[in-house]
């Protein structure tokens, strides 16, 4: 039951973008085109899931037994940063087209606060390795859902004549607000079943 709760929670009910304010910079930055949004989603799903697993292991086997909880922030960010480097090197070799499309955003996953955010949430909820990984995956899928929906909407904006004062962030934030209003419909979904 907890597994379903985590997945539904991450994707719909407590969506990272719409309900938790996490990962907003790339959400606005990479959502102009559906193709790049999809590529970025793939990268985020991979990095967030793996980062959750790795940091959970680090927490359980190193930080907690040694009483180094106060070094968590530094340790996590270093793990995530080196992990992203690895993905970058791998992608450059294996999928140069995708690598080119994602451009500067790949290294920026390090500063995607959703990635560090989900690992911090895992610790706070004291999930084990399995549940942490699942939570990372669910959060990343929710983030991807949000950016794919938004990219679909934004592609239509190419037809319209946006005033300069609204271009970019103002309009993106207002749209995110409207999307988040719609996602309020999922609040407390299956609450009776889970608690």
């Amino acid at each position: 039951m907890e597994i379903i709760a985590i997945i539904l929670g991450g994707v719909l009910i407590n969506n990272f973008v719409f309900m938790q304010y996490l990962g907003l910079c790339p959400f606005v930055g990479v959502s102009r085109q559906l193709e790049t949004a999809l590529g970025m989603s793939g990268a985020v799903v991979f990095v967030m899931t793996m980062a959750s697993a790795v940091t959970a292991a680090l927490e359980i086997y190193v930080l907690a037994p040694l009483g180094l909880g106060y070094l968590r922030t530094i340790a996590y960010i270093l793990v995530i940063a080196s992990f992203v480097q690895l993905v970058e090197i791998f992608m450059k070799k294996a999928a140069p087209g995708l690598y080119k499309a994602l451009g500067i955003y790949l290294p920026l996953i390090t500063t995607n606060c959703a990635v560090l955010g989900v690992t911090m949430l895992n610790v706070r909820r004291s999930y084990g390795i399995l549940l942490s990984t699942l939570n990372g995956l669910a959060g990343a899928l929710g983030w991807s859902l949000a950016i794919i929906i938004f990219a679909g909407i934004r592609e239509r904006w190419r037809l319209m004549d946006i005033p300069k004062t609204l271009e970019g962030f103002p309009l993106a934030l207002i749209s995110t607000g409207l999307m988040s209003l719609a996602f309020l419909g999922f609040q407390n979904l299956f609450k009776a079943a889970f608690h």
């Binding site: 004062t165 934030l173 995110t176 607000g177």
Partner: peptide, 15 residues
């Protein structure tokens, strides 16, 4: 105080 209000408030303020 909720996320939708925050997004819309900041968006309008920026505009």
């Amino acid at each position: 105080l909720t996320p939708p209000g925050g997004f819309i408030c900041l968006g309008l303020l920026m505009a």
